[in-house]
Amino acid sequence: MKQLIRKADVILFIVLIAVGLAASAVLSVHSGSSTDAKVVIKSGGRVYARYPLSEDAELEIPAPGSAGSSASSETDECTHYLNYNVVSIKDGRVSVSKASCKNQVCVRHGSISMPGETIVCLPNRLVVSIEGDEGGGYDSITS
């Protein structure tokens, strides 16, 4: 074999790192913090609901296609649906506290609190994200 690392490797490495740094710089500009943030819950590509980040809530979101499977009476378990995610909003932080999905990536993700941050549950096609103040345009200077 030839040498372990060649000139083109180094160039490619630098280019990739530069792309990554540029991308994270762009993304961080678009996610400035804001006081009037909203929690946007998308299910199967459609906006399911919007909630204020400031109010504590516990929401059960059915996965697309499994709505109303056995939504009978008040059972103490929160499995009214075959596939679901429970989204908790508490003290300005959002997390998925419970989910029917097998990999539990969404539950292990932990909580988010900054605009632009996202929790995704791929099996249930759920996206929970925080949206900043829409009217503000670019992030206004807040302390």
């Binding site: 994270s24 993304l27 199967g44 590509g45 941050e117 996202t118 995704v120 791929l122 096609r125 996206v127």
Partner: peptide
């Protein structure tokens, strides 16, 4: 799958 481009917030980390 998710029909939400916001997932690209993961792009730098995954890169």
């Amino acid at each position: 799958l998710i029909e939400d481009l916001r997932i690209f917030i993961y792009f730098p980390v995954l890169l």
